[in-house]
Design a protein around this nucleic acid. Structure first.
Length: 477
RNA sequence: GGCCCUAUCGUCUAGUGGCCUAGGACGUGGCCUUCUCAAGGCCAAAACACGGGUUCGAUUCCCGUUGGGGCUACCA
C-alpha cells in the first residue's frame, strides 16, 4: 500500500497484561494490529502491561510470547512496563509541579462509601477530591495520585470504526492515575507509553472506549499528540457477554495443543468482525492466507456489533486448511501428535505416507490422528456385532463372505487397491456390496467409521490383512 | 444507578435509498455418490427487533422504544 509522502510511519501495539494465558480476544486484537501495521509498512509493538505486580506473572508473559510466535504475529519491538518506572516518575513529577495532578488521601473505604451514596442518589459515581487544589509537596507515603479534572467540558474523538464518540468529561471526576510516583495505573501508563513508543493507531477492544476520554484528558494535559483510535467489537460467548474463561474459552496455546492450525485460527479470528467486499463477480471469500489478509484488510470494513465465538466454523476452517496441506507439511505438523507412533513410523516411512493420504481429509483437528492411524499399527479390538452390516445380516453370510475374501486375498500376488477391488468386484456385486464389503472393512479396521477396505488392505499388506480376516472368522467359531 | 457502544437467517456476515423475490459462509435437513465415515455435487428451511418520521420510495437516513453489551477500582 502506498504511503503518503512525509507521513509518519504507522506503529501499532498489542498491550496485554500477563495475568492469564492469552485468549482469543487478545489474539484477534494482536492480529488486527499486526495486519494494519504491516499492510502500511509499519511496526507492530508488543508491550507487556505488568504494572500490577500482584496479578502479573512471568509465566503468562511467556504464554503470551509463545502464542504470538505460534500465530506468526512477530513483533518489531518489545517493552515491559515494570521496567519503565523512571519514565513514569519523570512525567508524574512534572505534572505535580504543574499542579495538574494531586495527592488524594482518601481511603478505599471512604471512596466505597461515597460511591454507595452516589449510586443511591442516582448520580454518576465519581470522586471529586477535596484535596484537588492542595498543590506542592505532600507526604507521598499516603494516598494516590489523581488527575485534576476541569469539568464541564465535552471531550470527543473520531473512532475509525465507529465515527464520532463524545463524553461529558465531568462525570469522570478526579480519576486515579498512579499509586505512587513509581507505580502508575493503567490509564496513565498507556498514555505515556503510547507517546514514548510513537504509537500512531490504537486498535483495541470496545471495552476500552470508556477509558479513551481519560487518556485524552491526560494527553491534553501533557501536550501529547493524540493517536488515532479504532475500537473493535468484542468477541462474545454463547450468552453474548464478553468471552471469558467462564464460557470455557480456550487459550491460544490450548488450540495449538488440540491440533488447530495457526492459519485456521487466524482466518477464523479475522472473520469475527471483519469481512471484505465481494469480488467483481460477487463471490465472497472465506479462506484467507496471511498475504491475502494483508492485501484486503481495512479498518472501515470492521463490524460494530459484537461477534459470538462458535467453534463450528473454526472446525470447518481447520479441516479445510488441513486438507490443503501438502504431504510433507502435514506430516511435520503431525509430529507433536504422533509421538506414540514415532518408532513405527520410522520403521516404514512409505507406509506412513500412505496412512497420511488416507487420513488427511478426515481430520478436523490434528489430535485425532492417533485414533485414526492406530488401525494400521495395532491389532484391532472390536465387538463381534460390529461385523454385521445391517440388523438382518446372518452370521453364516458374514463368514461365507469373509472366507471368500480370505481365499482371494491369500491367492493373489497383485497387491494394490485397484487390483484388489477388481478381484473382488464380481463377487461383491453378486452378493451385494454392503453385504460383503462392510464385514471386510470392519475386519480390517475394527471401526464403525474408517477409510475403505481396499485402501486399508493395500497399506496393511497381504500378511496382515489375511491375518485380520482370519481373526474375524474365528469370532464365529 | 450513571455514562458509552450496539442491533440483517441459529452463528459469522454482504448490503451505504430503488439492482432485495435481502446474497454468501458455517451449522441444520433432504437428495445424489456410497460398504461406513470424510470429502464432493445438488436442493431446502432460516433474518432486516418495534414504533414514529424524512422521501415518490426505506434493511439502508433521523428520532424514540425495546433488547444486547461494555465501563463505572489504589485491575488492565
Amino acid at each position: 500500500m502506498l504511503k503518503e509522502k512525509g507521513a509518519k510511519k504507522i506503529r501499532t501495539r498489542i498491550a496485554p497484561s500477563p495475568t492469564g494465558p492469552m485468549h482469543a480476544g487478545t489474539a484477534r486484537s494482536a492480529l488486527f494490529n499486526f495486519i494494519f501495521a504491516k499492510q502500511h509498512g509499519g511496526d507492530f509493538v508488543l508491550r507487556i502491561e505488568d504494572t500490577d505486580l500482584e496479578r502479573s506473572d512471568t509465566i503468562f508473559e511467556k504464554d503470551i510470547r509463545e502464542s504470538l510466535e505460534w500465530l506468526g504475529l512477530d513483533w518489531d519491538e518489545f517493552y515491559r512496563q515494570s521496567e519503565r518506572a523512571d519514565i513514569y516518575e519523570k512525567y508524574l513529577k512534572n505534572l505535580l509541579d504543574a499542579g495538574l495532578i494531586f495527592w488524594c488521601p482518601h481511603s478505599e473505604e471512604d471512596l466505597a462509601k461515597e460511591r454507595q451514596e452516589q449510586m443511591s442518589r442516582k448520580e454518576a459515581m465519581k470522586h471529586v477530591c477535596s484535596h484537588r487544589n492542595k498543590t506542592g509537596a505532600m507526604d507521598d507515603k499516603k494516598g494516590i495520585l489523581r488527575f485534576k479534572n476541569n469539568f464541564s467540558k465535552e471531550i470527543s474523538f473520531n473512532d475509525l470504526v465507529r465515527g464520532d464518540i463524545s463524553f461529558d468529561s465531568g462525570i469522570l471526576g478526579d480519576f486515579s492515575i498512579a499509586k505512587n510516583l513509581r507505580t502508575p495505573l493503567y490509564n496513565f501508563a498507556v498514555v505515556i507509553d503510547d507517546r514514548e513508543m510513537a504509537i500512531t493507531h490504537v486498535i483495541r477492544g470496545e471495552d476500552h472506549i470508556s477509558n479513551t476520554p481519560k487518556q485524552i484528558l491526560l494527553q491534553n494535559a501533557l501536550d501529547f499528540p493524540r493517536p488515532l483510535y479504532a475500537h473493535l467489537p468484542l468477541i462474545l460467548g454463547l450468552d453474548r457477554s464478553k468471552l471469558s474463561k467462564r464460557h470455557g474459552a480456550k487459550s491460544v496455546l490450548e488450540y495449538r495443543k488440540t491440533g488447530y492450525l495457526p492459519e485456521a485460527l487466524l482466518n477464523f479470528l479475522i472473520l469475527l468482525g471483519w469481512h471484505p467486499a465481494p469480488d467483481k463477480d460477487g463471490r465472497e471469500k472465506e479462506i484467507f492466507t496471511k498475504k491475502e489478509m494483508l492485501q484486503e484488510f481495512s479498518l472501515n470494513k470492521v463490524q460494530k456489533g459484537g461477534a459470538v465465538f462458535t467453534i463450528d466454523k473454526l472446525n470447518w476452517l481447520n479441516r479445510t486448511f488441513i486438507k490443503n496441506l501438502n504431504q510433507a507439511d502435514f506430516s511435520e505438523r503431525l509430529l507433536p501428535f504422533t509421538e506414540d507412533l514415532a518408532e513405527k513410523i520410522n520403521e516404514n516411512h512409505d507406509k506412513w505416507s500412505k496412512v497420511l493420504s488416507l487420513t488427511k481429509e478426515r481430520l478436523t483437528t490434528l489430535d485425532e490422528i492417533g485414533d485414526m492411524a492406530e488401525i494400521f499399527y495395532k491389532d484391532p479390538f472390536y465387538p463381534k456385532e460390529l461385523l454385521f452390516w445391517k440388523e438382518g445380516q446372518s452370521a453364516e453370510n458374514i463368514v461365507r463372505h469373509l472366507r471368500h475374501i480370505h481365499a482371494y486375498l491369500s491367492g493373489t500376488n497383485s497387491w494394490n487397491k485397484k487390483d484388489l477391488e477388481d478381484g473382488i468386484a464380481e463377487y461383491s456385486k453378486k452378493e451385494g456390496r454392503g453385504e460383503t464389503l462392510w464385514p471386510f472393512r470392519v475386519a480390517l479396521s475394527g471401526k464403525r467409521h474408517s477409510a475403505g477396505p481396499f485402501e486399508i488392505a493395500e497399506i496393511l499388506g497381504k500378511e496382515e490383512s489375511v491375518k485380520r480376516i482370519e481373526k474375524a472368522i474365528k469370532m464365529f467359531e
